[in-house]
Design a binder for these strands. Structure first.
Length: 502
RNA sequence: GGCCCGUUGGUCAAGUGGUCUAAGACAUCGGCCUUUCAAGCCGGUAACAGGGGUUCGAAUCCCCUACGGGUCACCA
């Protein structure tokens, strides 16, 4: 038995598993789209399948090249790489729908010849007029099929009026189409609720429900993972697959991601685009990890999971059914975690643009500056949650020109004798060598004992003197990073300030 | 409005008829630690939408109601 290697059916090989992410370039990639992309990618990587990226730019009015580029770069930022698609091509290209027009026309002609599609000369105005009336009468606004039976003469007449026809798909008048969905089971749609929908616009371009089917079948997509909003489109698409004589893919409708107010995600909900999260200083690893947990859950209790581990564990069995509201608090917490755990140099690399943006470091960072930045980031990152906060929390390391927090001045600079305390500290620091955390702390402890004050009484004013703040990294680490020269200067500056106040 | 999907704490979620006096995470509250702020550690508050069934037994199965979402475009 063990000698017999059973030949795999060609159709059953895992490498035939093909999924795609098919965004329309009418805006930036928002986290809902990113989650869909992620699940497709995870599913492909876990099963050794192929992940295809296809740009659905059939809407001439709304699609822009800029959006397409934005989506591509957002996916790259997230490190969701595709095996076929824009920039890299592949055997099923092109990967922009706008460049696959002849495929749609060909398929449309086939349906036309078979009598499964027909020309419709109704104008958009007429259509919407009828829709309004139906609405008013409280009836379903379905297309009434009036162009289905147009004669040759009718059509010539209508075209002489200057009308350009759209192509409609003829829904089989009775019956039920059942969508078999991995997440939701069997969902039946009666044909009565489906009307003859347009598959080719009068401008010769296909409409989503049609282009999508033509592409998914010509690209040999085996599993369609997409958001649940497409579930009710699916019966229409199945009917097209059948009319074209193409096999159905496996459908997987993912639960939606909703905004905090339970409504569908849109721009007015603040940061929802991947780019915005990036600009706010979130790390791609954190966003990915967070997104993976929206709709999917691992078997164990550990939620912090690096991407390879998520790939290893990912399974459709553990994808839920219900929509999720995203919660920036948890994302922020997770980001803070990744900020601390990630490789220091990588965090520095990503933090530098934020420092530059605030004018804290020059556009060209020298090796010495980078070394200094690294030391700063190392002690600052443990107490912040985002890259932007790293920059906010470390400005005084890069600029001498800071003001003292008012609250701190009241609390730590107003006690009689603080100026002498700081002077004494400066004197004690001056000869210290090496200027290191341990040495600094010992010096301060000794000094406070000698002066008969608590360590805090001298530590707090020192922090304020050095950073202008009442909170921050451990004081002795701060001093060590700042260096002796700056420390002494700032101590002196504070002494002057206090004496002026008095 | 028609059709479709969904409903476990504030949020994400585990749970697939008994082990549920319902796990874990974030948030929140309290404590410990401590030079501050975080982090970390320990502990607390907090949920099966409602009503009917089925069953010896229901968060889990069925029905109804309510609520939420989606969809009904020459948008995707």
């Amino acid at each position: 038995m063990s000698d017999i290697v059973s030949p795999l059916e060609p159709g059953s090989m895992m490498s035939d598993l093909r999924v795609r992410f098919a965004p329309s370039p009418t805006g930036s990639l928002h986290i809902g789209g990113a989650r869909t992309a992620l699940f497709n990618w995870l599913f492909a990587r876990h099963n050794n399948g192929v992940f295809v990226l296809r740009i659905e730019d059939t809407d001439l009015e709304r699609s822009t090249g800029e959006s397409a580029r934005g989506i591509v770069s957002a996916l790259r930022w997230l490190s969701l790489d595709w095996d076929e698609g824009p920039e890299i091509g592949g055997p099923c290209g092109p990967y922009f729908q706008s460049q696959r027009l002849c495929l749609y026309t060909e398929a449309a002609n086939k349906l036309l010849e078979q009598g499964m599609a027909y020309y419709c000369y109704c104008t958009q105005e007429e259509l919407s007029e009828r829709r309004q009336q139906a609405m008013k009468a409280g009836k379903a606004s379905r297309y009434d099929g009036r162009c289905r039976t147009l004669s040759r003469e009718d059509r010539i007449r209508l075209e002489q009026e200057g009308r350009r026809p759209a192509l409609r798909f003829h829904i089989p008048p009775s019956g039920v189409t059942v969508v078999t969905d991995v997440i939701r089971g069997e969902v039946a749609f009666s044909h009565e609720v489906l009307d003859d929908f347009i598959i080719m616009k009068s401008n010769g371009h296909p409409v989503y429900n049609f282009a999508c089917v033509v592409d998914d079948s010509s690209m040999k997509i085996s599993h369609v993972l997409r958001a649940e909003e497409h579930l009710s489109n699916t019966p229409r698409q199945i009917l097209i697959y059948q009319a074209l004589g193409e096999p159905l893919p496996v459908f997987v409708h993912l639960p939606m991601i909703l905004a905090p107010d339970r409504s569908k995600l849109s721009k007015r909900h603040g940061a929802t685009s991947v780019q915005e999260f990036s600009e706010q200083g979130f790390l791609p690893e954190a966003l990915l990890n967070y997104l993976a947990l929206l709709g999917w859950s691992p078997e164990g209790e550990e939620e912090i999971m690096p991407l390879p581990e998520i790939v290893r564990q990912f399974s459709l069995d553990r994808v839920g059914k219900n929509a999720a509201i995203y919660d920036t608090k948890k994302l922020t917490w997770m980001n803070g975690h990744y900020l601390n755990e990630a490789d220091l140099n990588s965090v520095v690399e990503q933090a530098i643009p934020f420092l530059q943006q605030r004018g804290l470091v020059p556009d060209d960072v020298s090796p010495e500056q980078r070394e200094y930045i690294t030391r700063v980031v190392e002690i600052v990152r443990t107490r912040v949650k985002t890259l932007a906060e790293i920059a906010d929390a470390s400005d005084y390391f890069f600029s001498d020109d800071f003001i003292y927090e008012e609250k701190g001045v009241r609390k730590h600079f107003s006690k009689p004798g603080v100026d002498r305390l700081l002077s004494a500290a400066a004197q004690r620091l001056e000869p210290l060598e090496p200027y290191e955390t341990r040495v600094l702390e010992d010096a301060y402890r000794d000094l406070s004992t000698e002066l008969g004050v608590s360590a805090g009484e001298i530590i707090h004013p020192t922090r304020l003197a050095l950073s202008g703040r009442t909170m921050g990294p451990g004081l002795f680490e701060l001093m060590a990073v700042l260096g002796k020269k700056k420390t002494l200067q700032r101590l002196e500056r504070a002494v002057q300030f206090i004496r002026q106040q008095a």
